[in-house]
């Protein structure tokens, strides 16, 4: 028994060096050669970081495309989903309010046009994407506020709709809004 204890202590020390020092240092070193050098992939505008491609941020001004509802209000220091169950009455009321808000700011759409991702909170609270339909319903509002033609904004959205070989189609809201700011009248 005593022998096992001593062996355990020594093995733990040796494995700590291997698994907790050597292993992560090797990976961190290789990671330096990745896009973003292992620090996450920032998006730059005029030499300034305005966000990370993977991290959704809060958009609620009318001149921008909006992202999904977030349980943490897009505070990326932490992360959380709503954890609301499908039959929770308070939650369903919240969803209904979101539907009404969307209808208010987009008077030209019908209820059936609203995709579920625009009225439900994401798992992380930091979802950077919306569905193509989620972007489509916002086009007219954004075009009106910015004085752009609907056709030019529609084209921009189409260009920013990613349709990967595997996985769902999506629109990265931050990238879309950055491109929107650069769009000429």
């Amino acid at each position: 028994m005593k022998r096992y204890i001593i062996q355990s202590i020594r093995l733990t020390v040796a494995l700590t060096a291997l698994l907790c020092v050597l292993y992560p240092v090797i990976v961190a070193f290789i990671g330096r050669f990745s896009n973003g050098a292992g620090n996450g992939q920032p998006i730059m505008v005029n030499g300034k970081v305005v966000g990370y491609a993977a991290i959704g941020q809060k958009f609620n001004k009318p001149q921008y495309f909006w992202g999904r509802p977030s349980a943490v209000d897009y505070n990326a220091a932490g992360s959380a989903g709503s954890n609301k169950g499908a039959t929770n009455a308070d939650y369903l009321k919240q969803v209904k309010d979101r539907v009404d808000t969307l209808l208010k700011y987009h008077p030209y759409i019908k209820k059936a046009d609203i995709p579920s991702d625009m009225v439900t909170a994401s798992g992380s609270g930091l979802d950077p994407d919306i569905s193509a339909q989620g972007a489509a319903i916002q086009i007219q509002r954004v075009a009106q506020v910015r004085g752009l033609t609907v056709a030019s904004v529609t084209k921009l959205v189409q260009d920013h709709t990613e349709k990967p070989v595997f996985g769902p189609a999506k629109v990265n809201v931050l990238k879309l809004n950055v491109a929107l700011n650069e769009l000429k009248k």
Partner: peptide, 16 residues
Amino acid sequence: MGVTQATGAMEGKEVR
């Protein structure tokens, strides 16, 4: 409520 769920249940899920 009349919302389209073409992409299924989305509460707590990620679009990507």
